[in-house]
Design a protein around this nucleic acid. Structure first.
Length: 782
DNA sequence: ATGTTGATACTTTTT
DNA sequence: GTATCAACAT
């Protein structure tokens, strides 16, 4: 014990297992951390204790987290714990860490440091061109399938040559795929670009091909810690493997004092991984559960610590979670427990429609909020992004503040991609894809024919498309078009000079915007949506300014890297004061006082596609488990009797996972229409055989449970009206009587907010109390 | 070269 | 229901 005083403060409030996980010292440590068992706390204190005791300097630590947000939080907490700066410590995601290494080592691997990071859409666009060139979709090789296959190969570290070596040449589809893979790889290289999967795979290849480069990082990072280890894929596994390898004597510098092995080599870095195989939900992107299951085999002499005490949820919530996950066989048995007591029962609700279900969620949220739960402590989860529609619809009408995390992101909007393409092209002139996007945006009269002429010229000269711009005069195009091309080339040159002189992203963006007339072109149109687009571009401009403020030393490349690697969960603003809506996948690692798990239906959870895949049902169950265990105090499970999926509606059945939760834990509330008309008190889902007793094996809803046809439809909110109503300047005051198309008559009990945002709280005669946004609610004053 | 129309196919989850 | 795409008209 070097400094017991400091250690004691670091261990404050930890249970014996957690202490052990913080204090253990050895080559490898596996922390099996159940949901809510305080693993982040353990990880941060472990790092803090390494620093505080002097065992490690910040420079020697590499910690990998799942999101950038988690990385920032961990850095702050470590800083707070040790009470001094942690500069030079790497806490980041796999992808961010790899980009840092690759930008630094780009020349070694024959690339330029300004390489572009292609997102899935960019990869898709490139693949699409190649598939078209080869007419490969006739062989069932659509861009989507090809993208998935290439991603899979890269995650398995199978590069083009390796793939070619093991190819079955009798299969024409395989041969065609190889050619696509080959051209895709060549295309990326020509554009000085890497896709998401390359970031990891290329770093591994770099380390393997250049041991002296690998040794640089092996010497530096003496302590490697990896969070969410159950979701690592093979490439990530290999990366960690390379980083923690012993360093050969020839790569050990003479001045190193820590030589221990007799042969002069330096032992590998100490490795700590934290994970929970029950929360592995990324098999579809190559996550291999075996990485954690077989960790002890891979790293001999591993110490394993099991954390089972849960500090997050009530016992009722944990009982439900334990019951569900115990249906997965072949798993390490663990049972979460807590000391906080049973808590509230889980609330269940079956709606007539997705809209009805959303109304239930909104009503319960209003009630929770009135009772004191802040909006930021409430989250709504769903399996697929398309489920947000009815939720948004109802939330807007109810005046509830919400934020959709992930989904169609800001950076996926066309105008943002346009402007980003300008910046990318400046940072990486070899990127033809980016240039093609902006060639005629805004309109300059450069159509397909002109583009083809430029491309042909570039190909003939063996240069990038960008270099062809300056030769426009030789191409015998019209004088107007020629001028436009030369202007664009000069603008890009000007911005590039700015970039090379160390200019900030914000300043370069200003140059590009004013020089290209992008905003003017949007202002000139009459399309009402263009106003929003202008706002978005201006928003991007303020993002660049904000970035410059937070990162004084960072230039254009750093900005582009950050933007390329934002994860959905990074968008969460802790003090925004709004309800968070997100997919179950995005929810991993987060926690909320109250959680609404919606669409707990067959074909949605489990999703119809995954139920056919090997291991799919178990993975979907883990997803359900992840959702349940996010809840601290209140859990709401809801479903609908019918679900509209692209166009028409179809009958939905309760999820098979619902019957895995002991009946006594769920307090089922019916759809109100169901209760009055049918007279029964048992909600539909509970009428299913097997609910009252133990697990019902082989039970199928589709044959046993014909859906009750929804009656008295107009009495309950059911249809999305489609168009947004506008009540103009309708004003309401306390005491007014109103009529609502869905809820009937009611009396206004309170009015809050001003202008278009004013909200009326209405006590309906039959439908209870609701909050309505006055401007757009389907109401009239009586 | 560009704008409009109509047909089509796709939606699981994400760095 | 929407986003993308081909065909056609200006």
């Amino acid at each position: 014990m070097s400094q017991p005083a400091i250690d004691e403060r670091l261990l404050e409030g930890l249970n014996p297992r957690q202490r052990e996980a913080v204090l253990y010292r050895g080559p490898s440590l596996l922390i099996v951390a159940g949901a809510g068992s305080g693993k982040t706390s353990v990880l941060t204190r472990r790092i803090a204790s390494l620093l505080a005791s002097g065992e490690a300097s910040p420079l020697q630590i590499l910690a990998i987290t799942f999101t950038n947000k988690a990385a920032n939080e961990m850095r702050e907490r470590v800083q707070h714990l040790v009470g001094r700066a942690t500069d030079g410590m790497w806490i980041s995601t796999f992808h961010s860490a790899c980009v840092r290494i690759l930008r630094r080592q780009a020349e070694v691997m024959g690339m330029k440091a300004g390489f572009t990071i292609y997102d899935s859409a960019d990869s898709r666009a490139l693949i699409k061109r190649i598939v078209k060139e080869l007419d490969a979709d006739t062989l069932n090789l659509t861009p989507g399938i090809v993208a998935g296959k290439i991603s899979k190969q890269k995650n398995e570290l199978v590069d083009v040559e390796t793939y070619a070596r093991n190819l079955n040449t009798d299969d024409p589809a395989e041969v065609a795929f190889l050619e696509i893979y080959r051209r895709y790889t060549a295309g990326l290289r020509r554009a000085n670009a890497l896709d998401f999967d390359d970031l990891i795979a290329e770093t591994v290849h770099l380390f393997r091909a250049f041991p002296e480069v690998a040794a640089l990082y092996q010497r530096r990072f003496r302590h490697v810690l990896v969070d969410e280890y159950q979701d690592t894929n093979h490439a990530q596994y290999a990366l960690i493997r390379e980083l923690t390898r012993p360093i050969k004597p020839q790569h050990v510098p003479d001045d190193t004092r820590t030589l221990t092995a007799p042969d002069g080599s330096l032992p590998g870095a100490s490795l700590t991984v934290v994970g929970d195989s029950d929360q592995s939900i990324y098999a579809f992107r190559g996550a291999d559960i075996r990485n954690i299951v077989e960790f002890e085999r891979d790293y001999p002499n591993t110490k394993t610590v099991l954390l089972e005490q849960n500090y997050r949820s009530t016992q009722n919530i944990l009982d439900a979670a334990n019951a569900v996950i115990s249906n997965n066989f072949d798993r390490l048995e663990k049972n979460l427990f807590t000391t906080v007591g049973a808590g509230h029962p889980i609330i269940g609700y079956t709606g007539y429609s997705g809209h009805d279900e959303a109304q239930f969620v909104a009503d319960e949220i209003s009630a929770l909020h009135s009772a004191g739960t802040p909006y930021r402590e409430i989250a709504v989860f769903y399996r697929t992004n398309s489920q947000t529609r009815p939720l948004e619809d109802v939330f807007i009408r109810s005046g509830l503040p919400y934020k959709i995390i992930g989904g169609t992101k800001f950076y996926e909007r066309a105008e943002i991609k346009d402007v980003m393409a300008y910046l990318i092209q400046v940072a990486n002139p070899a990127d033809d894809l980016a240039l093609r996007r902006i060639l005629n945006t805004p309109k300059r009269g450069i159509g397909p024919a002109t583009e083809a002429a430029l491309q042909a010229h570039a190909d003939k000269m063996g240069v990038a498309l960008r270099d062809a711009l300056g030769d426009a005069a030789q191409l015998e195009l019209g004088p107007k078009v020629t001028r436009a091309i030369l202007d664009l080339g000069e603008l890009l040159d000007e911005a590039e000079a700015q970039h090379l002189a160390g200019g900030k992203a914000a300043d370069i963006l200003l140059t590009l915007l004013s020089g290209s007339g992008y905003l003017e072109a949007l202002r000139a149109t009459r399309d009402p949506q263009d106003e929003a687009r202008i706002e978005n571009v201006e928003e991007l401009l303020s993002v660049t300014k904000e970035f410059a403020k937070n990162n004084p030393d960072a230039g254009l490349l750093e900005f582009l890297t950050e933007v390329a690697l934002v994860a959905a969960a990074d968008e969460i603003d802790d003090d925004s004061g709004s309800i968070s809506l997100m997919t179950l996948h995005t929810a991993k690692g987060l926690e909320y006082d109250a959680v609404f798990l919606t669409g707990v239906e067959e074909d949605l959870l489990p999703h119809r596609i995954s139920s056919g895949e090997p291991g799919g049902l178990a993975e979907e169950r883990r997803l359900f488990y992840v959702g349940i265990t996010r809840a601290k105090k209140r859990l709401f499970l809801s479903l609908s009797m019918q679900r509209s999926s692209f166009g028409d509606t179809s009958v939905a059945m309760p999820s098979r996972y619902l019957q895995e939760i002991p009946a006594g834990l769920i307090d089922w509330r019916q759809s109100p229409g169901d209760a009055t008309s049918r007279g029964g008190t048992r909600p539909r889902a509970l009428n299913a055989r097997g609910y009252a007793g133990g697990p019902a094996r082989g039970f199928s809803y589709s044959t046993e449970l014909p859906p009750a046809p929804p009656r008295v439809k107009r009495e309950w909110a059911s249809e999305i009206t489609g168009k947004v109503r506008d009540n103009g300047d309708l004003t309401l005051a306390e005491g007014d009587r109103i009529r609502h198309t869905d809820f009937g008559d009611g009396r206004v009990v309170a009015v809050t907010g001003v202008g278009t945002k004013s909200i009326a709280e209405v006590q309906f005669d039959t439908a209870g109390k609701k909050r309505l946004l006055i401007k757009i609610a389907p109401i009239e004053k009586l």
